[in-house]
């Protein structure tokens, strides 16, 4: 565990809490892509199956349980409790275009052709693109609430910090995992355009609004 990973995990946790809190306090999930949340639910489920098969540390297990629980809670709030506020007309990204290639790629490029390993690989590939329905929704409506922007920023920072973590681990521990690194770079790059808007607009007190 190094400082980059710890800060990355904290940022990840913060993103999830910001989102849950926003939905709970406003009693609404307007502006949030349910499809991205379903994809994240699938990502956590397929990656954290190893909770049963391998123990790494108490920290690791607790965080996994928290991520799973928070993800399912978000999905429940969106699709059951506050279903009426879900903006499905603007959430039109076709997720099969992400899931099918992620399955295919996981079957083709993996560390080992075993069920748990392929599910892990699938979750890494899917996570890298799982935010696309949300970004698509923001681009479709042309705007995002500040709180939604904070959520997206924290979620983007998380994978960015993981990149620093991987650079550190390569240098300090001689450890690297190419699948995670390549997918992590893709994931971080997808947030770059958003980071620019966040810094130039949201941090200056303006609403995130795309040019018409």
């Amino acid at each position: 565990m190094n400082i980059f990973r710890l800060l990355g995990d904290i940022s990840h946790l913060l993103a999830i809490i910001i989102l849950l809190r926003k939905i709970w306090m406003s009693r609404s999930c307007a502006g949030i892509s349910g499809k991205s949340q379903l994809l994240f639910g699938l990502v956590y489920t397929t990656r954290y199956l190893d909770l049963i098969t391998s123990y790494i540390s108490l920290y690791n297990s607790v965080m996994k349980v928290v991520f799973l629980a928070a993800s399912y809670a978000t999905i429940y709030l969106m699709y059951v409790k506050f279903k009426a506020t879900y903006d499905h007309n603007h959430d039109t990204f076709r997720i099969e275009f992400l899931v099918v290639p992620a399955v295919a790629l996981a079957l083709l490029i993996n560390h080992d052709f075993q069920v748990v390993e392929i599910l892990w690989t699938f979750s890494i590939y899917l996570e890298s693109v799982a935010i696309l329905p949300q970004l698509f929704m923001v681009s479709k409506t042309g705007e995002a609430e500040s709180i939604t922007s904070h959520y997206l920023f924290a979620l983007g920072v998380y994978r960015g910090l993981y990149l620093l973590n991987w650079i550190y681990r390569f240098w300090a521990e001689d450890h690297y995992d190419l699948i995670a690194i390549v997918a992590g770079v893709v994931q971080t790059v997808l947030y770059c355009d958003f980071f620019y808007l966040y810094i130039t607009k949201v941090l200056r007190g303006k609403k995130l609004q795309l040019p018409a």
């Binding site: 990840h12 190893d50 540390s57 965080m63 080992d112 450890h175």
Partner: peptide, 10 residues
């Protein structure tokens, strides 16, 4: 050394 299967990250 590459520790490919040590999925010790979240």
């Amino acid at each position: 050394a590459v520790v490919a299967f040590a999925h010790d990250e979240l």
